[in-house]
Amino acid sequence: MAELPNPQENLSLDTFLRGLWTENPVFAMLLGMCPVLAVTNSTMNAIAMGLATTFVLVCSSLLISLLRNWIPKQVRIASYIIIIATFVTIVDYGIQAISLELYAALGAFIQLIVVNCVILGRAEAYASKQRLHTTLVNSLGMGAGFTIALLALGTVREILGSGSILGVALFGEGFQPWVVMILPPGGFFVLGAWLLLFNWLRLRKERKVMEQSGVAANAG
C-alpha cells in the first residue's frame, strides 16, 4: 500500500477498484480465510456471508472515519472492536429475522465476522486516517472484492459438490456430486486452484511488462 505516506487520499476510481483486484482481501492479501473456507459450500451461503461482511465493513469503517479525530490512539483498538462487534450483532439479529435456515447454515461464522482481520485491517489502515467519502468508496470496494471472492469459491463448490447453482439443478437427475467439494477440504482445493490461476495471470502480466521495458535483460 504505497498510498500510506499520503495522509488524505483523493477520491478516484482506483479507490474502489483496488479492493477488487490489486488489494483483493482474499486473492491478494489472503485475509479472512476462516469464512472463505468454511461457508462457501453453496452460492447462497457465499452471497449471504459476503453481504453480511460488507455491511459490517462499510458501517464500521464509516463510523470510525467519522470519529477518527475523537478517538485517542491509546484506546483505538478497543473502540474499533466495540464498533465492529455492534454491527456484527446487528447483522446477527438481521439474518435471524430474514431466515433461520440461512442462520443455521452460516452458524457461528456470523459472530466470527467480528474477528475478521479484513475489517479491523481496514479500520486501522484506512478508515482511521481518511475522509468519510473516500472511506465509504474504499470499504465498498473491499466488501465487493470479498463478496466476489466468496462467490468465486461458492459457485465452483456448489456446481461440483451439488450440481446446482443457487439450488437450481444444472445437470438433471444422474449427476454425480463430488462430495468432497462441499466438505471443508473442498474449500482448500478450490481456493488453491483460484490462487494458482490468479498468480499465474499476475506473473504472466509482470513478465510481459518486464519484457516490454527491457528490464529483464538488465536484471538478468
Binding site: Q176, W178, V179, V180, M181, L183, P185
Partner: peptide, 10 residues
C-alpha cells in the same frame, strides 16, 4: 484419497 472423499459411494 481424493476420490474416496469425493465419491464415497462408488
Amino acid at each position: 484419497a481424493f476420490v474416496q472423499a469425493a465419491f464415497p459411494v462408488a
